[in-house]
Design a protein around this nucleic acid. Structure first.
Length: 576
RNA sequence: UGGGGAGUAGCCAAGUGGUAAGGCACCGGUCUUUGGAACCGGCUAUCGAAGGUUCGAAUCCUUCCUCCCCAGCCA
């Protein structure tokens, strides 16, 4: 038995949630008991994913809760795959789940288990229930079972097979296991109470016959335990003290407890329920995520628009930012929908402190500096991160022909537009103050090029007379620029609640047609040439970007993780 | 109309009989070589409603209202 430790029940600056309060209380009693010479215990939790899909941000909340509590109280958190339905579960999913939990920053040590590890024990316990007269083999079809179950307001009625003898049940159950009966022809059911007001207590199914190759046990079994029967007993086998799950299992708790009370299990875990995480502009149901992937609405489980951990990772989110979100949303029992903006803020807060700054021009507009010497190249030292002097500086080349952002020029600007316009002086970040002197247009009248003059006395961006333009622009030297593809991602759904749609439609009508805008021919400063997939940067004035794994030599690809806050854009939107 | 839960600001969420924390969003302002960041201020909540108990109620009692979950051989 692990050592009893109280740990720190209180995260700094935050009051403990109701589950941590329960755990702290239980640990307190265990410590007191241990001091009186009793056994006591250490906290044991578990994260129990079903390997039938990729982990998403909703799982992150559960992961942080379970692993977080174990860590804070000096206990342990097991990783247990709830793999009782081989028709939906795959090895690919168990691999991705482990990768994602590790990426999030948690470690289950040696304690990785599978419900399928317990199939033998679970079977023996089912036999035990039969012997006690508390379970029976039922020959009703699934339709009949449904009819016999009753409704929310009417009691069910007993299955005609409910009173089979122990011997007959034992024989039948063994033959179910032995493969003598076709799929779906019989079930093993608990004998509880067909009139119970809680429907999950009306003789729930424990085992069904199902011929499917299991990702771990292969074809060893043709009967598989149901969740309700497998979960609590798996908890008991592992010595779980606090079995934390989401609200929809609250009604199953009496059944969870019924099994624990009626079986010779080695421990008495207790179940607690909390509200799952929901986000605006996001769907998190596994069915929908699977549909988006399998029907090609996104490029895969790790498409940067997916709310999966793999998607967030590829998009450029940090594990720290996701953990910060989980920390900030709290743990309670109210159904809630958290604003996506909170997650974005967690990310910006993290990356603002850590991401190196770079200059990248998304939509290039050529600028010729008329009075700058032809062929001359200067190198400026720019801060890698103004928030963190220890991040140092890097060299950025400057020359006569540059690119600036097309959006940073307007020939006929509205009031309060501070950037480039004919006759106006702006600062080129870290370089010089320049003034727009001319506009060159192409045959169609589009602005093709800008002419500017440089004030050579403003080297580094400060004027000797102290004048300071209102705008500072990012730029890239044309001759030194690295070409890149930039993928500008936006929310996958345009509706705050994607599940609200017109009659006869479905959630997919809310898909955002502009969730991905791909830009090619973007111009990056040369220091970005060596970026590796996964590297994150702040492209100044644009947002945070992450080098994508699609990058090849000479063909760099960056994903936009999130934009910077843009008060100009907000102002524009408001005035419209 | 059965059972199980939940209602505190636009969104989360503390609060556990002593006079409503904090975060996000939003709105101002200061500062700024990122229209970013930082900093300051605002957002002044009939605590779902109505009764009651109490010197005192978001917290206790009663009734009512609204929302969520449960009728898979899914988890």
């Amino acid at each position: 038995m692990d050592k009893v430790t109280a740990g720190d029940a209180k995260a700094p600056g935050r009051s403990p949630d109701f589950i941590r309060e329960i755990v702290a209380h239980d640990v307190g009693e265990a410590v007191a008991e241990a001091e009186k010479g009793g056994g006591g215990y250490a906290v044991r939790t578990r994260f129990p994913p079903e390997p039938n899909g990729y982990l998403h941000i909703g799982h992150a909340k559960s992961i942080c809760l379970n692993f977080g509590i174990a860590k804070e109280f000096g206990g342990r958190c097991n990783l247990r795959f709830d793999d009782t339905n081989p028709s939906k579960e795959e090895q690919e999913y168990v691999d991705s789940i482990m990768e994602d939990i590790r990426w999030l920053g948690w470690d289950w040590g040696e304690h990785r288990y599978f419900a399928s590890d317990y199939f033998g024990q679970l079977y023996d316990w089912a036999v035990h229930l039969i012997r006690e007269g508390k379970a029976y083999v039922c020959d009703l079809t699934s339709d009949e079972v449904r009819q016999y179950r009753g409704t929310l307001t009417e009691p069910g009625k007993a299955s005609p097979y409910r009173d089979r003898s122990v011997e007959e049940n034992l024989d039948l159950f063994a033959r179910m296991k032995g493969g003598e009966f076709p799929d779906g022809s019989r079930t093993l059911r608990a004998k509880i109470d067909m009139a119970h007001p809680n429907i999950s207590m009306r003789d729930p199914v424990l085992y069904r016959i199902l011929r499917a190759t299991h990702h771990r046990t292969g074809d060893d079994w043709c009967i598989y335990p149901m969740y309700d029967y497998a979960h609590g007993q798996s908890d008991a086998i592992e010595g779980i003290t606090h079995s934390i799950c989401t609200l929809e299992f609250e009604a199953h708790r009496p059944l969870y407890e019924w099994f624990i009370e009626n079986l010779p299990v080695p421990a008495r875990p207790r179940q607690y329920e909390f509200a799952r995480l929901n986000l605006t502009y996001t769907v998190l149901s596994k069915r929908k995520l699977l549909e988006l992937v399998s029907k090609g609405y996104v490029s895969g489980w790790d498409d940067p628009r997916m709310p999966t951990l793999a998607g967030f990772r590829r998009r450029g989110y940090t594990p720290e930012s996701i953990r910060a979100l989980c920390d900030k949303v709290g743990v309670a029992k109210t159904n809630s929908v958290v604003d996506l903006a909170l997650l974005e803020e967690c990310l910006r807060d993290d990356l603002n402190k850590r991401a190196l700054r770079r200059m990248a021009v998304l939509r290039p507009l050529k600028v010729v500096l008329e009075n700058y010497p032809e062929g001359q190249v200067e190198e400026f030292d720019l801060n890698n991160n103004p928030e963190d002097p220890s991040a140092g500086t890097r060299k950025v080349p400057f020359s006569k022909v540059l690119y600036v952002e097309r959006e940073d020029f307007m020939e006929d600007p509205p009031k309060k537009f501070f950037r480039l316009t004919p006759g106006r002086e702006v600062r080129l970040r870290g370089a010089y103050l320049v003034t727009c002197t001319g506009v060159v247009k192409d045959a169609s009248g589009e602005v093709a090029e800008l002419r500017c003059t440089v004030d050579l006395s403003t080297k580094g961006g400060t004027a000797p007379d102290g004048r300071s333009p209102k705008a500072t622009l990012h730029w890239v030297s044309a001759a030194h620029a690295v070409d890149a593809e930039l993928r500008l991602y936006d929310r996958l759904f345009r509706a705050e609640n994607p599940d609200k749609y017109p009659e006869g439609q479905d959630y997919k009508v809310n898909l955002n047609p502009e969730s991905l805008v791909t830009l090619t021919g973007c111009k990056l400063e040369p220091s970005l040439a060596g970026a590796k997939p996964g590297d994150r940067f702040q492209f100044e004035r644009q947002g945070y970007f992450c080098c994508d794994r699609d990058s090849k030599d000479g063909a760099t690809v960056f994903n936009r993780t999130v934009t910077l806050k843009d008060s100009w854009a907000r102002m524009q939107a408001r005035s419209r």
